[in-house]
């Protein structure tokens, strides 16, 4: 099921959560709404779910306007950051909830629940209560519960945000596989750019209630629409012409046109990568990343003067010239 969000606006008092947001999500795709906290991404997801009403604009599912429709009637599955487990029900009852209130025959419910519990690998814990599960298990239960009613749209609000890093990585690989196996359109909200790039086909980067850029993960990284997009995907160095990523700065021992002078403050070996901390002519600090081999060739030492220039074809924001003077 496709999702079309048109000119959606939402305020909470004086705070503008969303400002004229338009976004289309293709049927069967996995889209990430990415942005820092407070950017409006969760609000947008909740508007799609019908849990929040937009002040302006419309939401359509498969071309049908559902802006005024109650969440009950939208046919969507929603997964919350803090699981929203029905704590007074067993795992089995939690997963069965959507089917039971639809008054499906008992045998059918039992069969479907068993199938889902196997899918999320919780079949051994069916009679436990949520309080007896780990965070990762609770979130898998919440996913099974959402999938039980066979939603055509699955919405996940920071689903792995409350989990530790290892479980988070496991679950996102698993979510991607689940999405590919199920016939579902998935939208995931996250503030973690690595998670978004790992799991999503498309990313919509949101900041201050506005969409900054929509595209495939690579597009956002390789052709950022503005400085915010560029800075959101990792560290950047500001040059006179614009922003450059540290690994796109080239160091040489000889002066060359377009290069600016800097002094080596520290050389840090990080395995395959070497980080070189530098001070520019005005004493401002910045760093570059080199491979181990590159560094070995230069034999950098503390206090040494080097010449810094952006590499050919390096990624920058539009209209970026080659920097002459480096400023952090």
């Amino acid at each position: 099921m496709s999702i079309e969000i048109r000119n959606v606006g939402k305020r909470f008092g004086d705070f503008v959560a969303l400002d004229d947001v338009t976004l289309e999500v293709e049927t069967g795709s996995l889209t990430a709404l990415l942005g820092p906290s407070g950017s409006g991404k969760s609000t947008l997801l909740r508007i799609v779910a019908g849990l929040e009403r937009p002040d302006a604009g419309s939401v359509a599912l498969d071309g049908e306007d559902v802006t005024a429709r109650a969440p009950q009637a939208r046919g969507i599955g929603f997964v919350f950051q803090h699981y929203a487990a029905f704590k007074h029900m067993t795992v089995r009852k939690n997963v069965a909830f959507g089917l039971e209130i639809r008054r499906r025959p008992k045998a059918e419910v039992a069969e479907r629940v068993d199938e889902l519990l196997h899918l999320v690998q919780l079949h051994g814990l069916a009679d436990r209560y949520p309080a007896q599960l780990s965070g990762g298990q609770r979130q898998r239960m919440a996913l099974a519960r959402a999938l039980a009613v066979e939603p055509s749209v699955l919405l996940l609000d920071e689903p792995f945000g409350a989990l530790d890093a290892r479980v988070r990585k496991e679950l996102r690989v698993w979510l991607r596989r689940l999405h590919d196996e199920q016939d579902v359109t998935t939208v995931i909200v996250t503030h973690d750019q690595e998670e978004a790039m790992d799991v999503a086909d498309r990313i919509a980067l949101i900041h201050e209630g506005r969409i900054q850029q929509i595209g495939e993960p690579r597009e956002l990284y390789d052709a950022p629409a503005n400085d915010f997009v560029m800075t959101f995907f990792g560290p950047v160095v500001r040059t006179e012409g614009g922003l450059v990523r540290p690994h796109d700065l080239e160091l040489s021992l000889d002066e060359r046109p377009g290069a600016s002078e800097a002094m080596v403050a520290r050389v840090v070996h990080l395995g395959f990568e070497v980080r070189v901390d530098l001070l520019d002519g005005n004493g401002r600090a910045f760093s570059t990343q080199l491979t181990r081999d590159e560094e070995a060739e230069l034999e950098l030492e503390r206090g040494q003067i080097v010449f810094v220039s952006p590499r050919n074809g390096s990624v920058g924001t539009p209209g970026l010239g080659v920097g002459e003077e480096l400023v952090q």
């Binding site: 849990l51 969440p71 009950q72 969507i76 209130i101 519960r145 039980a148």
Partner: peptide, 23 residues
């Protein structure tokens, strides 16, 4: 009471009466 439980129930299709009675 975690109001997200109620929202989760609504998103699963539960009407307000069911949300009160079951959640």
């Amino acid at each position: 009471l975690d109001t997200e439980m109620e929202e989760a129930a609504r998103s699963l299709g539960a009407g307000e009466g069911t949300v009160f009675r079951r959640i």
